[in-house]
Design a protein around this nucleic acid. Structure first.
Lengths: 121, 121
DNA sequence: AAGGTAATTAGGTAATTGCTTAATTAACGA
DNA sequence: TCGTTAATTAAGCAATTACCTAATTACCTT
């Protein structure tokens, strides 16, 4: 059993990757940050400017997203540049859906339906 | 703009569907419940038996999952039968991934890869 | 109607979250 | 080297969460 997705109730080890990802996604500001980064990489300051929230607060959100493996941090001079790592998000969510809705059926169909809807409006 | 996914920062109305789903998923016990229900419907008691947690605690988790539209509650005599609603989960997660990783590309590919992996081991 | 079981609601508490402001670290430019 | 800007770390606080036990509601059986 190479599960890991649901075993994080057991107190044995640290928090588990899936738990980190789902926790990261449970916050509206953090999802909003992901959405911003999906368009282009941004510095911490540029991200903070888009929120009614102190810079340190945004910085914490960024660190949670980074720990979850959803974004990447790159120091460039005095700026810190953040960008999206799509893979972990897609793998985790998809893995979970596969677990809960056995076989790829539902999400594949939905995904295709949505793709069609976007192509032909 | 019929977004709604990221607008829940605005204090206008109540909590927003996506927020409820993501919050519901941020808890390991709740994800575990969904996994149990993916195999078959269960009564509240049968679910509680699978956890080292009081019945009322499990009941709360069930109510959060129900409010998020992820599970369905059906009273059958003195028992309460719970079962999965796949649609909301799939729609929300997929919608979010579409938002963050534009066009259906990544999750569709991943989904297919995983489906293949399960079919031919 | 009485007693038993299933489940939820109510009330309380310790731990965690999500922010704030102040202090610190690091890099740039004159 | 000094002042400025970018970003994080630190410290503190109000509000929320996640659980518990006790009480309640609903239904079934006799």
């Amino acid at each position: 059993m190479e599960d890991e997705t649901f075993d994080e109730t057991s107190e044995g080890s640290s928090v588990g990757a899936a738990q980190r990802v789902f926790h990261a996604l449970s916050s509206a500001p953090r999802r909003k940050i992901l959405a911003y980064l999906s368009a282009s990489g941004l510095t911490a300051g540029e991200i903070a400017d888009r929120f009614n929230m102190s810079k340190p607060a945004v910085s914490q959100h960024l660190s949670i997203l980074e720990t979850a493996g959803l974004i990447r941090r790159e120091k460039q001079g005095q700026f810190v540049h953040y960008s999206l790592i799509e893979n972990n998000l897609v793998n985790t969510l998809n893995g979970f859906v596969q677990e809960v809705c056995p076989v790829g059926r539902p999400i594949k169909k939905e995904s295709q339906a949505r793709a069609r809807a976007k192509e032909s409006p």
